[in-house]
Amino acid sequence: MIEAISCGGVVIFRGKILLLYKNIKNKYEGWVLPKGTVEPGETHEETALREVLEESGSRAFIVDYVGRSEYSFTVPEDVVAKEVHWYLMSTDSYYSKPQREEYFADSGFYKYHEAYHLLKFANEKQILEKAYAEYQERKRNNQWMN
């Protein structure tokens, strides 16, 4: 078994959530949250910020740690057990530009109910629920910047 650690973000601007649409030669299609693999010497926070910037072009900043998700998938030579650490993030604009090299065909900010239904994976929907609840709580308490 191969163990892998990734980090990502639920980026919220003016109540809308950043999503990416991945399309790998029509074999894999779906909306996802930005995330990626931890590189040697990087903290989880640094990875999450770098991956959001690389995959979406959004210059986000971390508000809080949301939690982690775990899942596994099969590759030709083995099974990969993946752990993903998620952060609630904010940014200062709706700007996004999908990273073509990673097969992202589209990106954008969506209202919560749209984002929830667009997301392909159940574990990302759970993270979105948790992150959005924290966003709403911070907004109610005037602890959200935009």
Rank of each mutant, 00 (worst) to 15 (best):
I2D: 13
E114G: 03
T74M: 07
K139F: 13
T47W: 04
T47V: 07
A48E: 04
Y28G: 00
D78H: 09
R59V: 11
Q136F: 00
L33D: 06
L128M: 03
G67R: 06
W31P: 01
S58A: 15
N26F: 08
R68S: 14
G41A: 10
A105R: 12
K22V: 14
G41N: 13
L118Y: 14
I62Q: 07
K97C: 10
K25Q: 12
H113I: 11
E70G: 02
G36N: 11
I62R: 07
M89P: 02
T74G: 01
Q143H: 11
E101N: 12
K139H: 08
A115D: 05
E70C: 00
F73Y: 15
Y132I: 03
S107D: 10
E124P: 00
G9L: 05
I62F: 07
L18T: 06
N141C: 03
G67Q: 06
R68L: 12
F121L: 10
L119K: 06
S96K: 04
E70S: 11
N142A: 10
N142V: 02
K82A: 14
T47C: 15
E46V: 09
D64V: 02
L18V: 08
S107P: 03
T37V: 13
Y103Q: 03
E124V: 00
D78I: 05
R138W: 09
V38H: 07
K130H: 08
V38I: 15
Y103I: 00
S107F: 00
T43R: 06
E129F: 02
F121E: 14
W144G: 00
L19K: 04
K25D: 14
A105C: 04
A122H: 11
C7G: 10
I12C: 08
V38R: 12
S72E: 15
